[in-house]
Nucleic acid binder design. Structure first.
Lengths: 341, 341
DNA sequence: GTTAGCACTCAACACCATTGAGTGCTAACG
DNA sequence: CGTTAGCACTCAATGGTGTTGAGTGCTAAC
């Protein structure tokens, strides 16, 4: 059996309805809709076919039908109608993005809030991979006897710091000249390339061997264990408003997943393309998110780094709107973050 | 009517029971408890008295009794028995605190997780007031034509940064010497005192007037609008496990409050003492937290600054344990954060 | 002062009948 | 031959009813 024009039409109508009501939809409901000129009986026959094809399911015999994940897949692949955001709304979103603070994490934080506000779902933003950022400046600042703070500023204005041990009796001036040397040597290099650069540094700087070794080690540790702070979540309570989470246990499980930043990072990870990507239900590998869909897009930071922004919502989410919002915000965020370059 | 020994005993037994079961407790239950050698009938008479005095309430005629906020107040003021944490547990907590990362926010983040893990409630940690931290180092780093990053390192190893505009054509070397001057001038001064220091700087540095003015402005802005990132929350989903939050709407309201960092900061604020403080139900002014209790303690950062750590839980929380945990963690956190000085 | 006994209350639970939204099937219609 | 009206059927949801049991307050006896 093949899907003809009418089956598409009906399936679309069913999904559209289910997305707003979250209730199994019956033949009468569809028949009444404008654009579908058939009696309930006809619709019923079609629905029966669609069920056999795996696009619909019935919670119980005397209930209406509910779209399956397969149906959502079809929906997002073929039936999406791109909705335009009003220019008014675009403006408001953009504005909230810039006005806030003058720091990168501030902007990302606001972006997460704007996203969850605009969609009423949960938003997630992942900062670009540390390794792809380019070093702009390195500074060692003494904070106590035998400890210093190593501060690394990257091209995107992102600042990372870590405490390192230093040999005793090193003066502030010496630390400064080491900082200067490091900056000169490492500037414009991506963070993931520091290992090579350090090899040479270590060879030519016997006297600061210990300190440089420690610095390298700390940087590498930072690179491999990405920071919790690099996953920002907005509107975590939003999903509790939807009937699929009226069960507190489900809600709790969901929130528990949100707290595990590593899981979130894994779920959001995506290939390099800038386009909006949709993962429905079990397509994202985490069992706890099996009845969620995850829509992601990318934003650019500087010239070589990408971050990810995404929305997590129930599988019956308003894909049309979410896609528009993510698409717009991806661009907006890239814009704003390029100003900090 | 006055509270005699026996009434205290019974009230305590009721609260102890209610804290673990969350169910109205009846006279039989109390009578069966070891340590109370009276028949249900006697207990009933006493309970009736306690109800009249406002310490107990009855959800409905044929139910047991439930402690009132007044009862909890009495309980924490007079009936607490300090419980000792096992040395095993202390060790585990302390360990989780240090092992993690080598940065201050990392430690605070872990502390929040340890707190919520150990208590199964929601934990909140507020970083010390920015203004009380002492400046250790100031660094201006060029990030683009006409913009620089101002980085301020404080005595506790906490790093704050902000983007500032700079006049065009300023070389990296010039920026460095300004940084050096700022560091010399401001070192060891608390951040809240920068205004006075800048007055003099501005007078003696006509050529960098614009830049310095902007820097001052940015610092003051930072001081007045405390950072969202300075309120760290752990175990936000924990409370959903308790019957008082089996209603999704309550749960949602609670989570919404947690997302508003400003409210949380206000609720946690406390006077300077280091001791553990308890606020029960409506005693904290936020209506949304009327059936929560909030227990807070302080931790020291460096010599002059205090941060706050706290637990938010249902009013029937296990006060004994929460107090022990907070007391211990307050000290532990102070210890660890002093190492970074 | 304490307690046993007893009548009373009321939420919780299980049980049942009713209702209505929705289906599948069949037969009639254009 | 596709479409539709009609009808019997299913089943979750709703609401009323009776029963149960935990708990109380009161009284009278110890």
């Amino acid at each position: 059996m093949q899907l003809d024009e009418r089956k598409y039409l009906i399936l679309q109508a069913i999904i559209d309805d289910y997305i707003v009501t979250a209730m199994p939809v019956g033949s009468r409901t569809i028949s009444r809709k404008s654009g579908v000129g058939f009696s309930p009986a006809t619709i019923r026959n079609e629905m029966s076919d669609l069920e056999e094809l795996g696009y619909l399911a019935q919670p119980h015999t005397s209930a209406g039908r509910v779209p399956s994940n397969k149906a959502y897949r079809l929906y997002v692949d073929h039936l999406l109608k791109t909705v335009k955001l009003t220019s008014d709304e675009r403006e408001r979103m953009h504005e909230h993005l810039v006005d806030k603070s003058r720091r990168v994490d501030g902007v990302i934080r606001s972006a997460a809030d704007v996203l969850s506000d605009a969609t009423k779902y949960t938003s997630v933003i992942v900062a670009p991979k540390l390794g792809t950022l380019r070093i702009k400046h390195v500074q060692l600042v003494p904070v106590a006897e035998k400890t210093a703070l190593m501060i690394i500023v990257t091209n995107a204005g992102i600042v990372k710091d870590a405490v390192i041990r230093i040999p005793g009796g090193l003066s502030a001036d010496e630390l400064y000249s080491i900082s200067r040397m490091l900056t000169e040597k490492l500037a414009e290099k991506p963070l993931e390339a520091v290992r090579q650069e350090f090899a040479e540094l270590l060879r030519n700087n016997a006297e600061n061997r210990r300190l440089l070794g420690e610095a390298l080690q700390v940087i590498e540790k930072k690179l491999e264990s990405e920071d919790q702070a690099d996953v920002i979540i907005g509107g975590s309570a939003n999903l509790l408003g939807y009937p699929e989470y009226s069960d507190v246990n489900k809600a709790r499980n969901f929130l528990a997943v949100l707290e595990s930043k590593d899981t979130i990072r894994r779920v959001l990870s995506r290939d390099g393309s800038m386009e909006v990507t949709i993962r429905i239900g079990p397509e994202n590998q985490v069992p706890a998110l099996n009845d969620c869909s995850i829509v992601t897009a990318s934003y650019r930071v500087g010239d070589h780094s990408n971050g990810i922004l995404g929305i997590i919502g129930p599988t019956r989410m308003n894909y049309n709107r979410v896609i528009s919002v993510l698409d717009f915000m991806g661009r907006a965020l890239s814009d704003v973050l390029s100003e900090y370059k």
